[in-house]
Each structure stands twice: as C-alpha cells, then as structure tokens.
C-alpha cells in the first residue's frame, strides 16, 4: 500500500469513528394526561420529520442527515429508556376558577368559599408553586382591563397570604382581555371571563 492509500484508509477509519460517536437523539410523541395528542417536528440541516401519531418516534444520527422515518415506540422501549424521568414527573396540577363582579376586583359571593378550597389544596399537596392569573371580559378598553385583571389577581394573592400561604410560592400574572375562557367579540360583557385562574402545583 502506498502512502496515499494509507492516508485514505486512515481518513476513512477516522470518519467512521467520528460518525460512530456522533450525538444521537430520540424523540417520542406521547399523549397528554387528558389523552390529547399534539404534534412535534424534528429538524436537522439534512431534513425534517413530523410526529403526529401517538407514540410516533424518530431518531437523529447526525446534523447532515434527515431524522429517521417515523416508527412506533413500544411500551417496553419507553419503560427501559424513560422509567427514571417518568417517575420524577411533577403530578398534574389542580385548577380553580374564581369569578368577579363586573368592573371590580370583588369576588362574586359563590367564589368566596373557593379561597378556603385553594388553601386546603396547597396544604395537602405541600405545594411549591401556585400560579394566579387575572382575566377580564372584553367590555371596556385594553388599558382598563389590564388594570382590572391585575387587581383581580392581586386580590386573590392577598386573600391567600391572609390565610397563611407563603408569598414566596405565588406567581401572579395578568392577562387583561387577551385570554378568554368563553371566546367573545371585543366589547362583549361575559361573566365567565371575569375571572382569576389558580393552578396549584
């Protein structure tokens, strides 16, 4: 073998070694806890693959090659590969909705008892995070509704703190009229949209 031949052999072995060590990814689409199946698209420089069926799986061997055609991940494969990560998944959250009187940050009478239910849930789960998001219906200006939804979220936050909940675990956000429970046209007053959603983790 001449020197050129030796060089080619070494170069081939080297590239085999490189590709053999190349990162390899596996992506599996699984149903949500409520059974809904979404979509995911995996992209490399070499192409892309869409996952849209339950337990659809694709693998990636290098950046220059397209992700593999979709196969189906078996329960055995999922158990062998993902048992540790599945065991540590945070448990599903508990969600509460509180309603407010029109144009105020004042709870409707029926929602006052929900505060106690939220406090009970926080204690039972030893919750580490409680998200409080304020919303308004679509009547009135954006500015007014931003302020209103903020005040509603703050009202719930303050009521929980008064009941002994640590402020450190509360995450307060306000959505204005941008995230409706019951979709309506702009300007429509809808009691079910005048709300605060509380998610206890």
């Amino acid at each position: 073998m001449n020197r050129y031949g030796t060089f080619l052999l070494v170069a081939t072995l080297f590239s085999l070694l490189i590709s053999g060590c190349a990162p390899r990814h596996t992506v599996v689409l699984v149903p949500d806890p409520d059974g809904h199946v979404g979509k995911a698209e995996v992209t490399t420089e070499g192409g892309k693959q869409l996952l849209e069926k339950s337990f659809g799986m694709t693998t990636v061997s290098s950046s220059s090659t397209a992700p593999s055609p979709v196969s189906v991940a078996t329960p055995e494969y999922i158990a062998a590969t993902f048992s540790d990560v599945l065991a540590i998944e945070p448990s599903p959250s508990e969600k509460f909705i509180l309603y407010f009187n029109s144009s105020t940050a004042e709870l409707v009478a029926e929602s006052r008892s929900t505060i106690a239910a939220i406090v009970a849930s926080i204690k039972k789960r030893v919750a580490v995070s409680v998200s409080i998001s304020g919303h308004s219906d679509a009547s009135g200006s954006t500015q007014l509704n931003d302020k209103l939804s903020y005040n509603r979220a703050q009202t719930v936050s303050e009521l929980l703190i008064q009941q002994g909940v640590s402020p450190d675990i509360l995450v307060v956000t306000s959505h204005g009229k941008g995230n409706q429970l019951v979709p309506t046209a702009d300007g429509v007053a809808e009691p079910r949209n005048r709300r605060v959603e509380v998610i206890v983790r």
Binding site: T43, V60, V85
Partner: peptide, 16 residues
C-alpha cells in the same frame, strides 16, 4: 439538541 431542533404543538414529548 446538539444536532437537531424540535418544534412542538401542545403535547407531551419524551427525548433522549
């Protein structure tokens, strides 16, 4: 990821 990216629409994914 090191050699790919995932775009996702409202779902659950498992990845290695």
């Amino acid at each position: 990821m090191p050699v790919a990216t995932i775009a996702v629409r409202g779902t659950k994914l498992l990845v290695t």
